[in-house]
Design a protein around this nucleic acid. Structure first.
Lengths: 132, 132
DNA sequence: TGACTCTTACTACGTTTGTAGTAACATGTG
DNA sequence: CACATGTTACTACAAACGTAGTAAGAGTCA
């Protein structure tokens, strides 16, 4: 399951608190995101259509709830990144993390340990378990 | 600098060996990618336009060379991912990596150490150093 | 009951992305 | 020189994305 930038914003709000109404989500979006109510509605509709979110009615109001778990969305996004930018292996990613200047020396050392043992795991691209 | 999926494929070939011709890149794409020559040409043109690649002529043939470094492309992609999927902090990402069932116990422990010390670094979204 | 105010359903539209096609120009070869 | 072959320049076009508008129904309050 691939989420677009805008969809991530909406899903993040939904994971944080659900079920939620479109307006509730509008209220929990980061302050710099100022979308029209209808924009959020469109995004939710698209998410429902792709099976990431379930919609049900309470009175005439729609409530939304995530189907795709945060866990799986993350796993999927990370796999995509690793495949496209890190040769499909987690080792290079860790290596890269290592090079972050913001790490403390101890962190660096700990990570180094981990990388040394990394079993060069190739990213099998195949069947994402992405529901639940 | 944001790269699309297709652009990553091309850039990966370019980083591997450059300068390169469009046809050379075609030859180094992974076997499952079967693009028309003109498709690669279009992608290269878009990359040139966005400043990720430089093009120059040798005779009447175009040679291409990356301007955007792999390093920076990775950094940028990782930052985007972290911002959208991991609350803008590297800690949750490491946590997530930790949960990968493919880790050896020692790796897990080493990573755990690193995470414990993680300074909850918030993703300042701002000025990407993305050239060179 | 009429006027507001929400909510939904449907539609819209410019941009980006994936994926190419075609026409014209250059170059080497018989 | 005439032709085959490779190269470039330009154009195309459907799907996905970001971002929204409008019309019509439903609840609510004076």
């Amino acid at each position: 399951m691939r989420l677009t930038d805008a969809e991530w914003q909406v899903m993040n709000c939904l994971w944080e608190k659900h079920p939620a109404t479109a307006r509730g989500i509008a209220g929990r979006l980061p302050p710099e995101v100022k979308w029209a109510y209808t924009t959020i509605r469109t995004l939710l509709a698209r998410l429902v259509e792709k099976g990431a979110v379930r919609e049900y009615k309470e009175g005439n109001t729609s409530l939304y709830e995530p189907i795709l778990s945060r866990e799986n969305a993350r796993r999927s996004a990370l796999k995509t990144l690793v495949n496209q930018a890190f040769d499909g292996a987690y080792g290079p990613l860790m290596h890269f993390l290592l090079s972050d200047p913001a790490l403390t020396p101890r962190q660096r050392q700990a990570l180094e340990e981990a990388v040394k043992e990394q079993p060069e795991k190739r990213g099998g691209d195949s069947n994402d378990r992405d529901t639940q």
